[in-house]
Write a protein that binds this DNA or RNA. Structure first.
Lengths: 198, 198
DNA sequence: CCAGAAACAGGATGATCGTCCTGTTTTCAT
DNA sequence: ATGAAAACAGGACGATCATCCTGTTTCTGG
């Protein structure tokens, strides 16, 4: 036992969250054992339980830190930077489709996966997931509102249309996962553009 | 131990499938223990393992027998009987929304729930689920094709639009489950009608 | 009526799961 | 420097879990 060790609580927490995010979203919460996370993150049981006293607290941290971040980075930020909602939504879905083709495996939308598995399980899970869905819809609605003033989309209720956009993406991802193909995603991208066009 | 017993293999199988369908779709596959099913169905371990040698074979039977039937009865049959695709989709979603309000709890779409939890787990699961999605999309596409000839929908690709319809419903159900509210379902019903209108 | 198969009963079993517990080492304020 | 708190190590523990196994009862073809 070489007496050299460096305490790195932040890095330890980060590695655990990374491993947990990947496993929980990739194969599911209940399908993932804590010992898998230990080996995947290269962490001992003592360290793990020091940072996350229970599996429930761990997945809550994953939802609030990692899943929220993933939605923000892959969806909301690109959408905000896009010239219009239609172009933004289309290019985001296309980018994700390209990523799926490249990966050879469709793991599905992290938020969606955890939402369906955990929403019925625990009130705290449900609230954390619902909050992300809420921010998602709000961001799309805001972008639609801006386009609306310039006539870049057909006349619509921004909030309601945002719900359709998020729902269509979420459902397309579910089908893509079942089919192991990016085709539903691309199809919905086109159809959404059609539906929003002025 | 009164020596009276009546063998009822069909009824036994039916009760097990009912209990398994309810539990797997309501709380999840991995979240359901076999002993829960035993007590819920009033079945002994011996009888259960006689009809379904493993949990995997049980959920496969649930998907192929019960989930496929649920989709057919609550979705496809009403849609086929509706005068138009738009009215059919709208009334199906509204009917489901009413049901959710009445139940006080949103369990989500059975197919969707199992799709996201099991698609990544096993190839047989994935294939069984994908087959149902396929039939679903085909039924909507067929209805759209019929409407198309009579000008009851805007000009569109029936297959692609069917994908959007199923995706929007699936995603709306996911959001409804996270929000524990039927509102996303009603919103998407209206938005879909808007998008398909000639 | 009578074997043989199917249906059912009920507990045993080994594996695995999440959590906890007792130590040891590192860090840091004083 | 030093004591206390935080960070980490590594195994133990009880509770499930899914499956299997040995019997017993009921059905069915001949």
């Amino acid at each position: 036992m070489a007496g050299l060790r460096t305490n790195d609580p932040d890095g330890m927490r980060r590695r655990v969250l990374d491993a947990a995010f990947s496993a929980f979203c990739g194969q599911g919460y209940h399908a993932t054992a804590m010992h898998e996370l230990r080996t995947a993150a290269g962490v001992t049981g003592g360290a793990l339980s020091h940072h996350f006293p229970s599996k429930k607290e761990l997945v809550l941290a994953v939802i609030r830190d990692r899943v929220a971040d993933a939605v923000e980075r892959t969806w909301l930020a690109p959408l905000r930077d896009a010239p219009t909602t239609i172009e933004g939504v289309h290019s985001v879905l296309e980018a994700i489709a390209v990523e799926l083709d490249r990966n050879q495996v469709v793991r599905g939308c992290p938020l969606n996966n955890l939402a369906l598995e955990l929403s019925g399980q625990d009130t705290e899970f449900r609230a954390a997931i619902d909050a992300i869905f809420g921010r998602w819809r709000a961001a799309v609605a805001e972008k639609l509102r801006a386009d609306l003033e310039q006539g870049l989309v057909r006349p619509l209720d921004p909030g309601a249309a945002a719900t359709l956009v998020v729902a269509a993406y979420s459902g397309a991802m579910a089908m893509a996962k079942a089919a192991q193909s990016a085709e539903p995603l691309r199809t919905c991208a086109d159809q959404l553009a059609w539906a929003l066009r002025p």
